[in-house]
Each structure stands twice: as C-alpha cells, then as structure tokens.
Design a binder for these strands. Structure first.
Lengths: 240, 240
DNA sequence: CGGGAAGCTTGCGCCAACGCAAGGAACGCC
DNA sequence: GGCGTTCCTTGCGTTGGCGCAAGCTTCCCG
C-alpha cells in the first residue's frame, strides 16, 4: 500500500523518465513527488486544462480520452503501472491532450511543473527521457492513424485487442486475459466504430474459438488466429 | 539562393527549436549545420530508417508519409519553411516515423545527431524547445485521430482543406490559394478516403461556390462556408 | 505540333458498417 | 431476494462511400 512516508527509491526503477539517474537523483526526485490516490472513475486531469503537473502511475490503470463537441468519446490510450502520463507538462505552456480517468483504483506519483522543471535543470537526462517517451507515443499515434485510414473495422479491432494483450495481458489457463475491465463500448472508442459492430465481431471470433467473452472481460484463446486477422493474412479454413 | 558560406544568423530567427538562444548560440548552431538541396520528388529520409539527423526547412515544402504493407500511402503532415522535421533524431535511438519527400524544390539546414546532441548539452533550451514542438505535434495527431474516428468524410475533407489554408494559404484575388501542388489523391491520403470521393466532394463544393478547382490546385473562395462544413453547422439554404 | 502520361470527373452497382430497436444477462444496491 | 442499472446481443433496414470503368482535360516532352 503506497504511503507518502514510504518513498522507496526502487519505486522509480523501471520508470522510463528517470532512467540514467544516479541514486541521489532518484532520492531527490522522490522527495519532490507527492502521492495521489484515485478511485475507479475518478479523473486526474481534464482535456484542455493547463498542464501543471505530470505523473507516473504506480498501481492501477487509467484511460486517457477526448470528448468531441458532439459528446462522442474517443480513447487515446491506456496507461499501466510505471508509465508516465501528463508528460506534456514537462514542456510548459501546453494543455493536456485529453482527460485521464482511473479504470481501476490507482496510485500515482505526481510532480508539479516547477518541481519537474527544477529537476530537469539539474538532471538534463530527464528532459531527454521525456522526449524519447513522447517520440514513442507520437509514433504509436501515427501508427493508429495509419490503421484508421487504411484498415477495415475487423482488422482494427484485431489490432486493438492485440495491443491490449501486449499492454495488459495476464496469462490464465488456456489463454491471455485483459487484466482490467474493458467493455465493448471501450473497444469501440479505441477503434472508431460502434459497440454494436464490436459486439458482432467479437461474437464471431468467439464462435471461431479465437476469444472468450464475458461482461467487461476478454480472454484471447488463439493469439495466432488474432494475428492472422490483424495482418489480414489468408486463414486456411478449407473444409467444406 | 542558400549557400553553405552564407550562414546569416537571422536564418534561425523564426525557428522554434532555437528560440531563446543568444546570438552566440545561434552562430554555433549554424556553424554545425549543413545545407541540403532537395529537388521536387527527392527523399530526405525514409520510414523506419535510423534517425541520424534532424532538419529545419528553409525554402520549399515537404510531405511526410507512411506506406502500408499493402502499398497504400498515408500522409502524416506537410512541412513548410521554418518548421523542423526529423525531430525524433534529437531523442536518440529512434527511427523516422515516415518518409520525407520534397513536393517543391527545397532547401533545408541539417544537423547530425551528434552535432545536435552537443548543442543541446550546452544549450538545454534546445531540448525543451524540441520537446514542446513534439508535444504540439502529438496533440495535432490526436486531433486528427479523433476526426478520423468521429467524422464523416466530407467533414474530414473540410478540416483538411482548412488546415492546408492555415499552413500554406496565400491570398489571391477572390480567395485563398493553397501555395503548393496538391492533387485529389494527396487530399485523399490526408483524410483517409479515395481520390474519387475527394473529387466528388470538391466538385460539389465548387458548384456551391465554396472553392475553385484546378489541376493540383485549390482555391478557397468562401472560408466561412468551409468552416460551416468542418464544424457541421446547419447551413441556411432554405430557398425551395 | 502531336502523342502520351498524369491528373481529374462522373455514372453505376454494391457492400461494410451504422442506426434503431427490442430483448436478454449479469451485476450491485438496498 | 427483489429491483434497477449497466452491459451485451442480435435482427433488420438503410446508406455513405468504395471500387470499377470509361472518358475527359491539362500538361509535358519529343
């Protein structure tokens, strides 16, 4: 259970943005941080709000999403443990790209913009690390944009599910379970379609033994079959 | 006409990544740069190639695009004068997100990765600036992703044209001309549709007096009308 | 100046995906 | 344990936009 007093330096070990810092740097970073607790459904920050803090998730899972003027929700990405979010705050002068909401009870470490700027002053590596992370995110987003523009719905759903497996898959008997609640609606918001189409598509996959479905639950039984759909390879089901 | 000897420090004046540098810093930056000339159609770098240099465009225009495994092209963005491209090279360890091709004869200033890393060491502001630019690009890309997921084709085309006007519009009598050759195919690759649909849509707009069309040419006559389509506002054409 | 290439338009048929609607299943709260 | 809410499924009709195909215009180059 996290707690403000218990600032074990190993907390920052696997955190990209602090890679390359010595022990002293990590202690300093931790000293400047504050814990925040997030109950499921709670928001950390909102779309277009001035980016005044950045965070590293330690426990739980968040969804970063945008809402259109018409009220439609679009999911930008999910954040898992050890990932940073609100990283635009490091740049200064920008607003958050979306709204961050906890989809599980979560704990995160937060730094105010001035705190992180001070740290980056002393340890320039931090800025470089943040930049590398942003570069990676930019590439991910480009890849999704390319998908959206060139792929049919079924293939996009396959890619999305594959991504969820890679990000949050937990081995269970007979398959890999997405380790947090995902509704059909959530998948629709990630792929740019409707919950109806997602439901139909997943049902068809269940029929074929590729996935097993539950309420806000998704287990991939046949990752290879999924990959075949995602890459649009011809499947060899040639029995009449 | 640019030339390697003629390194006027004012060249870097409006360049985001060097904002906040003193005169000496700019001289140093220029001293480390090299000119590259690009004929129309020529490539600067290719998708997935290791990012070993970053550039600032001085004259001309480039297109950054990706090609899918199936051979479909997707345009990520256009680059105009004073914009940076290949900025992921500043981070290190990454590959270019797409292929950069000149759509006009162009001149750019280039820095190798080690040159820019040395500069960033001395002037940390450079890293911050680069990061801010990347943050901005990330937000742009998210906005486009949201468009792709929630908007119909006509609206997406309207947004794309509006973006082109903002980026590369030149006032001409009676309207605003996109100041570089754009084909219907190009617009299709930016919006995620086919050249057929773009052609049909633009023709309909021409009918309504919103745009004027030519071969690889596009003039917006009625920006307001365009905005109405882009924002999906009800237009008041209530004559029977 | 003539021929070819590249770019553009437009008609037509089709289908993937949407939107609606109705009903069913699982969960949580009192 | 009952009830309300949230989530999921599935049938059916509609349609936006695609893909094909044919023909046109503009430009370039020999």
């Amino acid at each position: 259970m996290p707690n403000p007093r218990n600032l074990d330096p190993s907390l920052l070990d696997a955190v990209d943005v602090f890679v390359g810092l010595d022990a002293e740097g990590r202690s300093r970073a931790l000293a400047a941080a504050h814990w925040i607790k997030l109950a499921t459904g709670q928001q950390v920050f909102e779309q277009d709000q001035e980016a005044d803090a950045f965070y590293v998730l330690e426990v739980g899972r968040l969804k970063v999403s945008q809402v259109t003027a018409e009220g439609q929700e679009v999911t930008i990405r999910y954040i898992g443990p050890k990932e940073m979010f609100g990283c635009v705050a490091v740049c200064g002068g920008l607003t958050y790209p979306g709204t961050a909401t906890a989809v599980l009870d979560s704990w995160a470490l937060g730094w105010t913009r001035s705190n992180i700027a001070d740290l980056a002053q002393i340890y320039p590596q931090i800025a470089l690390n943040a930049m590398r992370t942003m570069g990676g995110r930019l590439k991910d987003t480009h890849a999704r944009l390319r998908e959206m523009q060139t792929e049919r719905v079924e293939r996009r759903i396959a890619h999305t599910v594959a991504r969820l497996v890679a990000q949050a898959g937990r081995r269970v008997e007979g398959g890999i379970l997405i380790d947090f609640p995902v509704s059909r609606q959530d998948i629709a918001e990630m792929t740019g379609t409707t919950l109806h189409t997602v439901s139909r598509t997943l049902s068809a996959w269940q029929e074929r033994g590729i996935v097993e479905l539950g309420r806000q639950k998704l287990t991939v039984l046949d990752p290879h079959g999924l990959a075949i759909i995602a890459e649009d390879l011809p499947s060899q089901q040639n029995d009449a």
